[in-house]
């Protein structure tokens, strides 16, 4: 197995073009596990850890560009204020050691349906910046996940960055696990309110072949919420929202949980996170009025 160590992103893209079956590796928290378990044996590894620019993030006019090599620990420390949903999801990833090494780029590259950041990226309308020697293209998160561990990248492409708006409204993320830390999600859910656009983002994780939007739930809620004169939510709205989120999922039975439990739990997570997010919104409105 070759171990390719480019020093710049341009070099990395050239190598990837030359050897499209080289597997990119950053934190190694997914790839090394797969190698160790003998789940795959790529002809080459493309080490991205020498490329400084991938580990940078920048903010311009409330638009954030987060390099694919920024580890979860830095998202939590440095971006918690601007990207609260992503920071919440990042906090639930692995252990401190894993969060020091693991990256959102890696989460996207692996495209596991259980990846913790995916629902947040979907709910927050993230756009993935994919680069190759041929050029750069922007892929909305909703079009990025194609199947179990399959994404929309071409063989010669690498993930350069993730683009997100600084949260325009409250965001929440919740996950059910089989223990309290260092655990793969049984199911997960993210919600993002976009008050200016009177719109809601909602997405489920670990409950379908891919992470996915709960579109009907988003549309239902956008219609129900009174954005201009916010008031406490009716239980019936929360309940219906939960039902629609559960309907968006097509989970399976596995060792972590049954399909029925996942649907049930998603409805609970959806009701709860909606309650927290709307409470947050109400609080903000009240403060702004006062």
């Amino acid at each position: 197995m070759d171990f390719l160590r480019p020093n710049t992103f341009a070099e990395a893209l050239a190598l990837k073009a030359e050897q499209p079956d080289a597997v990119p590796i950053a934190g190694g928290t997914d790839v090394m596990v797969e190698l160790n378990f003998d789940h795959r044996r790529p002809p080459a590894l493309l080490d991205l850890t020498r490329i400084a620019e991938l580990r940078e993030w920048s903010a311009v006019d409330g638009k954030l560009r987060v390099g694919s090599g920024v580890p979860y620990a830095r998202i939590i420390e440095q971006l918690g204020g601007q990207l609260p949903g992503l920071a919440m999801a990042s906090r639930t990833v692995g252990s401190p050691q894993i969060r020091n090494r693991g990256t959102v780029g890696g989460n996207l590259g692996a495209a596991s349906p259980a990846g913790d950041t995916h629902p947040v990226l979907l709910a927050g309308d993230a756009v993935i910046e994919a680069a190759s020697a041929r050029g750069t293209r922007m892929i909305p998160a909703a079009e990025f996940y194609l199947g179990v561990k399959r994404n929309a990248l071409e063989p010669d492409e690498l993930i350069a960055a993730v683009h997100l708006n600084a949260a325009p409204g409250p965001e929440q993320f919740a996950k059910v696990g089989t223990r309290n830390a260092m655990v793969i999600a049984v199911c997960s859910f993210a919600i993002a309110l976009h008050p200016a656009e009177k719109r809601v983002g909602a997405a489920v994780g670990s409950a379908a072949p891919t992470p996915r939007h709960a579109t009907a739930a988003e549309e239902f809620l956008a219609g129900e919420l009174d954005w201009d004169a916010p008031k406490p939510l009716l239980d019936s709205v929360k309940r219906r929202f939960g039902e629609l989120v559960a309907e968006a999922a097509s989970p399976i039975d596995d060792v972590r949980g049954s399909a029925a439990y996942r649907k049930h739990a998603l409805a609970v997570l959806a009701r709860r996170t909606l309650g927290w997010a709307w409470q947050d919104h109400l609080g903000k409105e009240t403060r702004e009025c006062a």
Binding site: V33, F37, S95, T178, R179, N180, A181, M182, V183, I184, V255
Partner: peptide, 24 residues
């Protein structure tokens, strides 16, 4: 867990065999 037909352990690793973490 043992595969009911193959008689093999399905997750011989610390990701599948859960032990309490500090948070538990």
């Amino acid at each position: 867990t043992t595969h009911p037909r193959l008689g093999k352990y399905t997750s011989p690793n610390l990701s599948g065999y859960l032990l309490p973490t500090n948070a538990d």
